[in-house]
Computed example of a mutant assay.
Amino acid sequence: MIWIIGGTSDANRLAERIRSEGHRVLISTTTAYGSQLAALQNFEIMEQQLSESDMEQLLTDTAISVVVDASHPFAELVSTQAMAVCARMKRPYLRFEREQVQIAGAHYYPDYDELIETLKQTSGNILLTIGSKNVHRFCPELLDRIVARVLPVSKSLDECQAAGLLAHQLIAMKGRMRVETNRALMEEYLITQLVCKESGEAGGLLEKCQAAQELGIAAHIISRPRLHYPLVFSDPEALVQQLNETLKVLRT
């Protein structure tokens, strides 16, 4: 069986491609939303926040042959843990990483602290499109200026409300949006500063930044964590080819 660390649209597309090769696939996610997306394609799903010991147990109990890590570019902890477990248990580990997209004119930051210090020197409303987990970092200093676009699930809304955001500061919408939709939201909420993660094309980065550029809004982007993967692919076909070659070696 192939274990795909998922929770993203990339993971689901990759799982479908791997299944088409005749391989049995298990997708793990950490959220109900991720599980719902995977369930639409009838994959075997495990919804659980896995510790390293959980991962070791999974590899043993489920007879996993190869681990394919297609988690979000910012899921640093799960990737680090999976690499460590695979190294200890001598299981092949393949990383699928979204291609990076460089946005001309955008400001890039290695961490939230530097970004927040920069935002303190600006004025106007700030649109956060970084998910809900890190919204609290911007509070209370920037609280009154924040509008957060998050997934329409209770956990995301609860995290934002715990950080102090009120209902009028929340936009609950799923998925990648068209440029026109992003532009309309920025105009409606009088946004002057856009904050994104370096999530790549699949994360809607291009559409958000294009809308900001058209409106003269400054774009601020948190750079991806830099991890040292043993094998990393941005081309799904190249990963599938490597997977098949790896499985052939394991069977000999």
Rank of each mutant, 00 (worst) to 15 (best):
S20Y: 06
S51Y: 10
S65G: 06
L128D: 06
V25L: 07
P225C: 00
R24L: 13
T246N: 09
E47N: 15
I130C: 04
A75M: 03
M83A: 00
H136G: 11
H107N: 13
L151I: 11
R224I: 05
M1P: 12
S28A: 03
I191F: 06
V249S: 07
R137V: 08
H23T: 01
H228P: 14
L157T: 15
Y112F: 11
A184P: 14
V66S: 02
E188C: 09
L40M: 15
S223Y: 02
F233H: 01
I4F: 05
F74A: 08
F43E: 09
M46W: 06
I2T: 00
L243S: 02
S223R: 12
Y33M: 12
N125W: 04
I4D: 06
K174M: 10
L231F: 07
P236N: 02
L166H: 14
P230A: 03
F74G: 00
I18R: 06
K174S: 15
Q57E: 07
A211E: 02
V25K: 07
T62I: 04
S223W: 10
V66F: 11
H23F: 03
E187L: 14
L185Q: 12
P140E: 02
Q100C: 04
G164I: 13
G105W: 04
K197Q: 03
I146L: 08
A104V: 13
M177T: 12
T122E: 01
S51P: 05
L239M: 02
R19Q: 06
M89D: 00
K120R: 06
I126K: 07
D69M: 03
L185P: 03
H107I: 03
E198N: 09
L227Y: 09
L143Y: 08
I191L: 13
M1Q: 08
E198D: 15
S28E: 09
D113I: 13
H72Y: 09
C196D: 14
M177V: 15
R13K: 09
A219T: 01
A106M: 04
V232I: 04
L166K: 15
